[in-house]
Amino acid sequence: MANHVLLNNVTHKDLKIDPRYSAAHGNNIASTIIFPNEIEDIQKEYPILFRKDPETNQFLSTVILGFEKTKTCF
């Protein structure tokens, strides 16, 4: 379980960002579900598909982030 805390410059002075490309950081995700309020901004840069979930029969708005064979996050 994640322990969420507010960032501050004293406690987190040694915190660094890992700039490497890695599947562990989610860089192998080719698509993800988006919310309706995100569509206006996302449609400018990425294709959006509406996918029917076979379990619930509901449509999900999905953004395509790349075309390489990778896993999806839903």
Rank of each mutant, 00 (worst) to 15 (best):
S31H: 03
D53Q: 00
I34C: 12
C73T: 04
I33E: 09
S61T: 09
A23S: 10
D53L: 01
P36H: 13
I39H: 04
Q58F: 13
I17P: 00
N28T: 05
F50C: 09
A2C: 13
I33H: 06
E45T: 10
V63I: 07
V63W: 03
A2G: 05
L65H: 04
N37Q: 12
Y46T: 00
T11K: 11
G66I: 03
F74C: 02
T11S: 14
A2P: 02
E55V: 01
F67V: 12
D14N: 06
L7C: 03
I42Q: 10
V63G: 04
G66H: 12
H12Y: 12
M1P: 13
E45P: 00
L49K: 15
Q58G: 01
F67S: 13
T72I: 10
I17W: 07
V63N: 08
N9V: 09
K44E: 15
F74V: 02
N3H: 10
D53A: 00
L15R: 03
N3T: 15
E55A: 09
T56E: 05
I17D: 09
A30G: 05
T56L: 00
L7P: 00
Q58N: 06
D41A: 08
T56K: 05
T32D: 03
K69E: 15
L6W: 11
P19E: 12
T32S: 07
N57M: 01
A24N: 01
N9D: 12
K69N: 15
E55T: 08
E40M: 07
Q43T: 06
V10G: 02
T32A: 12
I39T: 11
E45R: 01
M1W: 02
V10K: 08
E40L: 09
R20V: 11
P47D: 15
L15F: 12
V10R: 04
A24W: 01
G66L: 08
I48D: 07
H4Q: 00
N8Q: 01
K16H: 01
A24T: 02
Q43W: 03
T72P: 01
S22N: 09
I33F: 01
